[in-house]
Design a protein around this nucleic acid. Sequence first.
DNA 1: AGAAAAAGTTGAGGTAGTCAACTATCGCCT
DNA 2: AGGCGATAGTTGACTACCTCAACTTTTTCT
Lengths: 148, 148
Amino acid sequence: MAVDKDPASEAWELLWEVMQANKPRFMALAQELGLSPVQLHTLRIIEPGVEVPMSSLAGKLFCDNSNVTGIVDRLEARDLVERRPAENDRRVKLLVLTAEGERIRGIAHGQMTQPPPEIAALPIEHKRALRDALRAAVDSRDAATASR
Amino acid sequence: MAVDKDPASEAWELLWEVMQANKPRFMALAQELGLSPVQLHTLRIIEPGVEVPMSSLAGKLFCDNSNVTGIVDRLEARDLVERRPAENDRRVKLLVLTAEGERIRGIAHGQMTQPPPEIAALPIEHKRALRDALRAAVDSRDAATASR
DNA sequence: AGAAAAAGTTGAGGTAGTCAACTATCGCCT
DNA sequence: AGGCGATAGTTGACTACCTCAACTTTTTCT
């Protein structure tokens, strides 16, 4: 007789499956907007009106600084993003969305925050349960990182 | 006064956040195994002892056939995967894991199916709720695709 | 048989990613 | 103040990934 799997492991696998199933949507959106997946992801990281140093982007993209240079070069070439010098530290360059950048990001954000049909169609108790469990998970992670 | 956000949208955002937080673990694992992220992902798609046509891989990786050729070339160069002709259709090539491929995939699979700490540390009711809600979501998607 | 479609490969061209070396700047330290 | 080590970003070389169009071989349809 098979031993029941840990519910956490099962949940984790299902989580993967749901995200995997949504990859096509993400790819299609990128294509519609004429962006590569990385460019779309990058655009989403930069919030409208907020200046972000390039090195912070490197952290969030989990890649190295020299790579960010290239990505930003291409975004800047399309006028989606602008490099500007930082006041207090002349080594750093701050990134800001241009008007066009904000526009594109707005469209992307609107689409991507829309839950996929299989989540949207869930009965309300399941939606709430999902939200509450995930909220607890994220909060516990935040607490863990804060205490480091 | 702010209107409460739809719990499904909130859940969806949190889901993203959890997966995002886990990317470093995935990247680190790939690096340890000496694989690129795509190679690791590909290896996970091919189940031990199961022959997979290349075109099916293209579908699962959401990319085109010519790209699969390159990815498989590199995996084959490392003896993780083997191309073999299909019996009934001489156009298709079937991929199988080599012994070494199964070994590496085994390690990867063992690590990746392990839920991240923030999920593992959840109280049991939350774990079960998460599993049940996600199971329902995945099942409803499967039902939808089956009826097409 | 002959046309159309499918599986895989090749080559050209662009994006993404790493690493090492370099420049400019900052911070500290005594 | 002068000097040294760290940090931010860039550049260049090299690899991996990815798409598109063109091509070969084989299958399928009619």
